[in-house]
Protein backbone atom coordinates (compact mmCIF):
# COMPACT_ATOMS: atom_id res chain seq x y z
CA UNK A 1 0.00 0.00 0.00
CA UNK A 2 2.64 2.46 1.09
CA UNK A 3 4.81 1.50 -1.86
CA UNK A 4 1.89 2.14 -4.23
CA UNK A 5 1.34 5.63 -2.76
CA UNK A 6 5.04 6.40 -3.12
CA UNK A 7 4.95 5.19 -6.71
CA UNK A 8 2.04 7.55 -7.54
CA UNK A 9 3.80 10.48 -5.84
CA UNK A 10 7.04 9.74 -7.70
CA UNK A 11 5.26 9.58 -11.09
CA UNK A 12 3.50 12.86 -10.32
CA UNK A 13 6.77 14.54 -9.31
CA UNK A 14 8.54 13.30 -12.46
CA UNK A 15 5.86 14.58 -14.85
CA UNK A 16 5.51 17.92 -13.05
CA UNK A 17 9.27 18.30 -13.35
CA UNK A 18 9.05 17.51 -17.05
CA UNK A 19 6.59 20.39 -17.40
CA UNK A 20 8.86 22.79 -15.55
CA UNK A 21 11.89 21.82 -17.63
CA UNK A 22 9.91 21.97 -20.88
CA UNK A 23 9.21 25.59 -19.93
CA UNK A 24 12.95 26.26 -19.85
CA UNK A 25 13.95 24.10 -22.83
CA UNK A 26 11.51 24.97 -25.65
CA UNK A 27 12.14 27.89 -28.05
CA UNK A 28 8.86 29.84 -28.24
CA UNK A 29 5.57 30.53 -26.44
CA UNK A 30 3.41 27.90 -28.14
CA UNK A 31 5.75 24.97 -27.61
CA UNK A 32 6.21 26.07 -23.99
CA UNK A 33 2.44 26.03 -23.51
CA UNK A 34 2.46 22.50 -24.98
CA UNK A 35 4.93 21.19 -22.46
CA UNK A 36 3.75 23.15 -19.45
CA UNK A 37 0.03 22.38 -19.77
CA UNK A 38 0.22 18.70 -20.66
CA UNK A 39 2.85 17.70 -18.17
CA UNK A 40 1.66 19.69 -15.16
CA UNK A 41 -1.93 18.50 -15.64
CA UNK A 42 -0.87 14.87 -15.98
CA UNK A 43 1.53 15.10 -13.04
CA UNK A 44 -1.07 16.78 -10.84
CA UNK A 45 -3.54 13.97 -11.63
CA UNK A 46 -1.11 11.45 -10.14
CA UNK A 47 -0.14 13.61 -7.16
CA UNK A 48 -3.76 14.27 -6.22
CA UNK A 49 -4.74 10.64 -6.93
CA UNK A 50 -2.24 9.61 -4.24
CA UNK A 51 -3.97 11.98 -1.81
CA UNK A 52 -7.42 10.59 -2.76
CA UNK A 53 -6.35 6.98 -2.21
CA UNK A 54 -4.68 7.89 1.07
CA UNK A 55 -7.89 9.61 2.23
CA UNK A 56 -10.15 6.70 1.29
CA UNK A 57 -7.85 4.18 2.97
CA UNK A 58 -7.70 6.29 6.13
CA UNK A 59 -11.51 6.39 6.08
CA UNK A 60 -13.86 8.03 8.57
CA UNK A 61 -15.06 11.61 8.43
CA UNK A 62 -11.68 13.27 8.06
CA UNK A 63 -10.21 10.92 5.46
CA UNK A 64 -13.43 10.95 3.42
CA UNK A 65 -13.58 14.74 3.45
CA UNK A 66 -9.95 14.93 2.38
CA UNK A 67 -10.53 12.52 -0.50
CA UNK A 68 -13.71 14.21 -1.77
CA UNK A 69 -12.23 17.70 -1.60
CA UNK A 70 -9.03 16.61 -3.33
CA UNK A 71 -11.14 14.99 -6.06
CA UNK A 72 -13.06 18.25 -6.50
CA UNK A 73 -9.78 20.19 -6.75
CA UNK A 74 -8.60 17.71 -9.40
CA UNK A 75 -11.87 18.15 -11.33
CA UNK A 76 -11.53 21.94 -11.38
CA UNK A 77 -7.86 21.69 -12.36
CA UNK A 78 -8.74 19.36 -15.23
CA UNK A 79 -11.33 21.80 -16.58
CA UNK A 80 -9.56 25.11 -16.03
CA UNK A 81 -6.01 24.24 -17.05
CA UNK A 82 -6.51 23.54 -20.80
CA UNK A 83 -9.03 26.36 -21.06
CA UNK A 84 -6.60 28.85 -19.55
CA UNK A 85 -3.75 27.73 -21.79
CA UNK A 86 -6.03 28.00 -24.83
CA UNK A 87 -6.88 31.58 -23.86
CA UNK A 88 -3.19 32.37 -23.40
CA UNK A 89 -2.29 30.93 -26.80
CA UNK A 90 -4.98 32.97 -28.51
CA UNK A 91 -3.94 36.11 -26.62
CA UNK A 92 -0.31 35.56 -27.60
CA UNK A 93 -1.24 35.19 -31.28
CA UNK A 94 -3.40 38.31 -31.22
CA UNK A 95 -0.60 40.19 -29.44
CA UNK A 96 1.61 39.49 -32.47
CA UNK A 97 3.86 36.66 -31.24
CA UNK A 98 4.49 34.28 -34.18
CA UNK A 99 5.58 30.64 -33.81
CA UNK A 100 9.33 30.29 -34.32
CA UNK A 101 10.26 28.30 -37.42
CA UNK A 102 6.66 27.62 -38.43
CA UNK A 103 6.15 25.78 -41.71
CA UNK A 104 2.52 26.92 -41.99
CA UNK A 105 0.37 29.52 -40.18
CA UNK A 106 -3.28 29.42 -41.25
CA UNK A 107 -4.42 31.76 -38.50
CA UNK A 108 -2.20 34.57 -39.71
CA UNK A 109 -3.56 34.11 -43.26
CA UNK A 110 -7.06 34.49 -41.90
CA UNK A 111 -6.24 37.67 -39.98
Amino acid sequence: MKVFLYLLLAIGAIFNGLGAFALIRFPDVYTRIHGATKCTTFGSIFSILAVVIYGFVKGGGEGGTLAIHALLALFFLLITNPTGSHALARGAHRAGVRPVGAVVDRLEEKE
Binding site: G19, A20, L23, R32, T40, T41, S47, G84, L88, A92
Partner: peptide, 13 residues
Protein backbone atom coordinates in the same frame (compact mmCIF):
# COMPACT_ATOMS: atom_id res chain seq x y z
CA UNK B 1 2.06 34.56 -18.37
CA UNK B 2 2.64 30.90 -19.29
CA UNK B 3 5.23 30.57 -16.54
CA UNK B 4 2.74 32.08 -14.07
CA UNK B 5 0.07 29.60 -15.19
CA UNK B 6 2.46 26.70 -14.63
CA UNK B 7 3.38 28.03 -11.19
CA UNK B 8 -0.33 28.25 -10.30
CA UNK B 9 -0.91 24.59 -11.19
CA UNK B 10 2.16 23.52 -9.24
CA UNK B 11 1.04 25.55 -6.21
CA UNK B 12 -2.41 23.90 -6.25
CA UNK B 13 -0.82 20.43 -6.27
Amino acid sequence: AVALDTINTLVVA
